[in-house]
């Protein structure tokens, strides 16, 4: 078990944040800290743009930074569950 930092990029739509936060409770995961803001610095996300083959526009997506303490296996499961949410573009561990 160790503390991890997760980065989630999701559509900036009503209700999208609640789906991610709700998932943690539903699946019995714990959130230690949470930060959310609309992404203005899209130039810092070229890697994500390339991997998803799309162009981000300012304020079009939100960035979630979550810290949680979990095992490797559970981390993988959490990321898969978050990635499954329809409004989520990508969820990954921020190293």
């Amino acid at each position: 078990m160790m503390q991890r930092k997760l980065l989630v990029i999701l559509e900036n739509k009503p209700g999208a944040l609640a789906r991610v936060v709700g998932l943690f409770h539903q699946r019995g995961y714990n959130i230690e800290s949470l930060h959310v803001d609309p992404v203005k610095d899209v130039e810092n996300y070229a890697e994500i743009e390339n991997s998803l083959n799309l162009k981000l526009k300012e304020n079009e997506v939100s960035r979630l930074l979550i810290t949680t303490t979990v095992s490797d296996n559970l981390l993988r499961q959490i990321l898969r569950q978050i990635n499954k949410l329809i409004d989520v573009l990508i969820a990954k561990e921020e190293i």
């Binding site: 296996n73 993988r76 499961q77 898969r80 569950q81 990635n83 499954k84």
Partner: peptide
């Protein structure tokens, strides 16, 4: 078809 169903309970 669902990645989150794989290795969830049994690796």
């Amino acid at each position: 078809v669902d990645q989150s169903s794989v290795s969830k309970i049994i690796e």
